[in-house]
Structure formats: C-alpha cells, structure tokens
Design a protein around this nucleic acid. Structure first.
Length: 309
DNA sequence: GGCACTCCAGGACTAACAAC
DNA sequence: GTTGTTAGTCCTGGAGTGCC
C-alpha cells in the first residue's frame, strides 16, 4: 500500500466517478481503476460499489476512506512543515474602515511579520459598501465594515446577496474627538448642541446599501452645520490637531494616538446611536486556515480590548 | 427494440528503473 | 545487457441509461 493508492481512492470518493477522478489526478481512467482494484485486493474489502451512474463508497469503504483521508492530511502537513522555503510569501489583503484601533492592530501585525521572507500586504481604508464589493469580488481576503445598527437590515441583506459570511467585532457609541486646545476640551460634559459653533470633519464617502447619497446625508446629525469632507485619515488628524475649532465623530481611539496628535476624545451625553464593526469574508474562504489572517484578527482583538479597557 | 452515450474494467503494450 | 517490476497508455468490451 502506498499514498498514491490512497489518493486515488479518496479522489474517487470525492468525485463519485473514476473518469473525473482520473482527470483530476492527471492519469488515465484504466490506471486509476487498476490502482483502486489493487488497493481493494490489498485490504480485502470493496471500497466502492460500482453503478452505472458512477460509484459510491460502501460502509466499510467509508470507514477505510476516513482513515485514508487522515493519513493523507498528516502527510500533507508533514510535507508542508519541511518543504516551506524561507522565501515563502506572506500575503494578506484587507479592506477596512478608517478606524484607529484597526490601523493600530495592523501596525502591530506588520511588526510581527518575518522581514526575511517575501511580503505582499494590501491595506485599504474605504467605506463599507466598497469593502463588501472588494471582498465579494475576491480582490481582498478580509474586510471590516462599519454601520449604524439602525441600518443593520440593509447591510445583512446586502451581505447575504453577496454570499458573504460575517461576525461582529465591536459595538460602540461614537465619541467626539478634538484638539486638546479646543474650547470644549476642558468641559466635563459634552452635548451635541455644544458642537454647533464648530467645524465638523466628516469622511466624505459614507455609503449605505440601497440608499443614495441624498438619503444618507439626511441621516447625518447636525446636517446644517459647518463641514469639511475628507477622504483619507492622515488629513483628519492633522486638521483636528491644527484647527482648534474642528471636531470629528469617531470610534474610540487608542490612548497613544490621542497623545501623539495632542487630541482628546469625549463621550457626548445625548449621542445614543450604536455602531457596529463587523468582519466579513467570502463563504468559500476559510480564513482561519490562513495563519496571516489569524495573526491579524488576534491583533484586532487585542486592540479592541485595549480601547475598551 | 434499436441506437447512442457513458462509465468501469481488462488485455496488450511501452517506458523507466533497479538488481544482477 | 538482461531480466523483473512498476506504472502508465491505448484499445476494446460489457453493461446500464435515456431517447426515439
């Protein structure tokens, strides 16, 4: 008995056809047929019941094939462990919202990479609808989307239509962030009306499934106020730290970033909307098999614990 | 019933390789 | 170089299914 015979039998069970299994294994059908027969004579059982519409495994055959699959998996793991070369590519692509705790996790993730090996990482910050598109179309491995819980139904329907899986990362209330020199910086209790005299910095490409831009802008609080729309996160911190009259609604920011940019964040007593950050992935992609994904998600978890502590 | 199609299996043959 | 073994292909046959 050898692993080739086992692979033949396992492939036949997988496809339910000698012909298809032979194609998949790049061998002629008669040879595959002989290999399976040889295996059956070696173990003295019939692994398959041959029918006109293909083959099905017998009860004994199923039992045998389960052992065979375990052996082949172990063989593959063994081979993988000892044939990986130092040049093996570390690759991951992420499409995420503009969130400091996520970028912090990303930095920690990158710090842990092996710089001796090849690296190919894509990290894009964009809106939730674009992230869903990026992941659904296979351009990115993982995505994180953000939406107000009021719009959960829209997003769930959209994710289902795109055949994506999801899991919740974090529910939170937006906090308001501004310069430590902002007139409100010393105020203990902030109300939404306190912000009216000041300039709000807003991400300009907010998007909600099944809603057009006009509808979305109508949902934004303080819609008649003073606004600066930005499309990348670097400018946001520069504006907030340099323009003392500016403020922004954000997810909770890690303390070290606030210190670095000389910012303060405060809860607003009358802001009660809950937002949700959600991890999304394609149905056919088992990201937990991907070591890189695991590392990144581990850093996200740590980052979330950090901002909640 | 006849025919075409599909699937599996067996026989004949070939090529590569190791042992002597 | 010869022989035996192994693993592969090609050709073909048997048998079931679907269609007319």
């Amino acid at each position: 008995m050898n692993t080739l015979l086992l692979r033949c039998a396992v492939e036949v069970e997988k496809t339910g056809s000698f012909t298809e299994a032979a194609n998949n294994l790049y061998m002629a059908q008669p040879n595959l047929s002989k290999n399976v027969k040889k295996l059956e004579s070696l173990i003295n059982i019939s692994i398959f019941e041959r029918t006109r519409n293909g083959v099905i495994a017998t009860p004994k055959g199923k039992e045998f094939l389960n052992y065979a699959k375990n052996i082949l998996n172990e063989m593959d793991r063994l081979e993988e462990m000892f044939t990986k070369t130092p040049s093996e590519m570390q690759s991951l692509s992420l499409s995420v919202p503009r969130a400091s705790y996520i970028s912090n996790a990303f930095i920690q993730f990158v710090k842990n990479l092996n710089f001796e090996k090849e690296i190919s990482i894509d990290y894009v910050e964009t809106n939730s609808v674009q992230t869903i598109k990026n992941v659904a179309e296979g351009h990115f491995d993982l995505g994180v989307i953000r939406f107000p819980l009021d719009y959960q139904r829209h997003f769930m329907q959209y994710l289902e239509n795109k055949n994506l899986k999801w899991e919740t990362l974090l529910d939170f209330e937006f906090v308001v962030v501004f310069s430590k020199n902002h007139p409100l910086a010393s105020k203990e209790v902030i109300q939404i009306s306190d912000l009216n005299p000041y300039v709000e910095i807003v991400h300009g490409d907010v998007s909600i499934p099944y809603m057009d831009n006009h509808d979305i802008k109508n949902t934004i609080k303080n819609k008649d106020g003073k606004k600066i729309y930005i499309y990348e996160r670097g400018s946001q911190f520069e504006l907030l730290s340099q323009i003392n009259e500016s403020y922004m609604w954000v997810s909770p920011i890690p303390e070290e970033i606030l210190i670095r940019h000389q910012l303060v964040q405060k809860k607003c007593v009358d802001e009660k909307h809950i937002y949700r950050d959600m991890l999304i992935k394609r149905n056919n992609l088992d990201v937990y098999k991907n070591q890189m994904s695991k590392w990144f998600l581990n850093e996200i978890e740590k980052s979330i614990k950090h901002i909640l502590s």
